[in-house]
Amino acid sequence: MKITTDKVNSNLVREVEEVSGQKVSACFQCGKCSGGCPVVLTMDVLPHQVLRYAQLGLVDELLHCKTLWICASCQTCDSRCPRNVDIPKVIEALRLLVLRNKGGNYLHPNDLSEKVRRNAPQQGLVSAFRKFAK
C-alpha cells in the first residue's frame, strides 16, 4: 500500500462519493464505527479504515477487501457516527463498483447451502441477492 499524489486525487473516490452521497472527508477517525460493528471481527479492513483508505485514494485496495461482503448494513455505525457519515452507503458504493464489473457477482444461486435453500425466508434471499449480485 502506498499513498501517492494521483491516488489521493483519484476519480474513483469521487465516484464513491457520488454513488454513496457521502463525504468521506468528513470522517475524523474516531473509530466509533469499528468499535460497535457486530461483524467487525471477520473484517480485514475495519469500517474506519474503509473511510481512511477512501480519504487517501486507496480505492483499489478497498475493492479487493473482504469487508465489502461482510458488512450487514445494520447501520449501527452510522447511528453513532459523530460526523454523519453513512458508512454502509460508502461500502455499498464500493460493492457496486465491484458488482458492475463483469463477473463481479459475489453470490450465485448455486452457492447456497442446502439449509439455506430449504429454510431461509424469502426476505433473506432477496436481500442477499440484492446486495451480492447484479
Partner: peptide
C-alpha cells in the same frame, strides 16, 4: 467498554 484503537486497528 467496546471500541477500537484506530492507530493499531485492534479492537478494544
Amino acid at each position: 467498554v467496546r471500541g477500537v484503537d484506530v492507530l493499531s486497528g485492534a479492537l478494544v
